[in-house]
């Protein structure tokens, strides 16, 4: 399982320093990043993280009397590599705000009510076709403490372990048709329009299972191609 990792098109990745996001200029390197030729060390990586961390089920909307408040949604996400080959067995960590836009986190005490039935985090493993599914509620938008009119649109955070160290990814997924998407400083830090659009999930019209939740599909592409692609 040898992987090849090539440089990314910078326009498909976010700017490191963002106007109006005051932490970014304090935390991004000033010196130029050092180019190196990847070796085995960077082109290998942990494949058995699931044995080290506690998996949390993919149903975070809850059942029975423990159901979270909000619009029930079903996320179907496929993890692929740059060849389009599914990445099975990948650990995916996910977290999001509740329907009111509040996180279960000591630092989020701003405005919106917590939901005692919503913890808002999952940790799952992709199946052989690279897919994981989550039953959750649609996250709410929330104002950023900059207090200058920036609100985060509804979004879901993903942290993904690929097959090699350089494929490790932390990203955010957005929802289609949200008016706040157009002004979000994080989403719009990605210069390329097609790359930005690929961060927005696809709405699937009702009529498919599960019948009692709105379905969204999404695709996550990890860096890397197999050195020897699978034969057709």
């Amino acid at each position: 399982m040898k992987m090849i990792i090539q440089p990314r098109d910078e326009r498909t990745q976010p700017a490191r320093i963002i106007a109006g996001y005051p932490q970014t200029p304090l935390r991004s390197p000033k010196e130029p990043l050092v180019k190196r030729a990847p070796t085995l060390s960077e082109l290998s990586g942990p494949l058995e993280v699931a044995k080290r961390v506690k998996l949390l089920g993919g149903d975070i909307a809850g059942q029975g009397e423990k159901q979270a408040i909000g619009q029930l949604i079903h996320l179907r996400v496929r993890v692929l590599d740059e060849d389009g080959a599914p990445v099975g067995g990948a650990v995916v960590e996910m977290w999001q705000a509740n329907a009111a836009g509040r996180y279960i986190h000591p630092n989020d005490d701003d405005h919106a009510p917590p939901d005692p039935n919503f913890y808002g985090a999952a940790r799952v493993v992709t199946d052989e076709s690279g897919v994981f599914e989550l039953r959750t509620v649609k996250p709410g938008a929330y104002p950023v403490p900059t207090r200058d009119g920036w609100w985060r649109p509804p979004h879901v955070h993903f942290s993904v372990f690929g097959r090699v160290w350089l494929a490790r990814l932390v990203t955010q997924m957005y929802f289609p048709g949200e008016p706040l998407n157009a002004q979000d400083r994080i989403l719009n830090a990605v210069p390329d329009a097609a790359a930005r659009d690929s961060l927005v999930a696809r709405y699937i019209p009702p009529g498919v299972e599960p019948y009692n939740a709105l379905v969204f599909e999404h695709q996550i592409v990890l860096r890397g191609r197999a050195a020897t692609p699978a034969q057709p």
């Binding site: 976010p14 986190h105 930005r196």
Partner: peptide, 18 residues
């Protein structure tokens, strides 16, 4: 070839049990 997904900040609110 597919375009690798854009990165984003982990943000301040990843769950403590992360």
């Amino acid at each position: 070839m597919m375009i690798p997904t854009g990165e984003a900040t982990i943000g301040p609110f990843f769950p403590p049990r992360y």
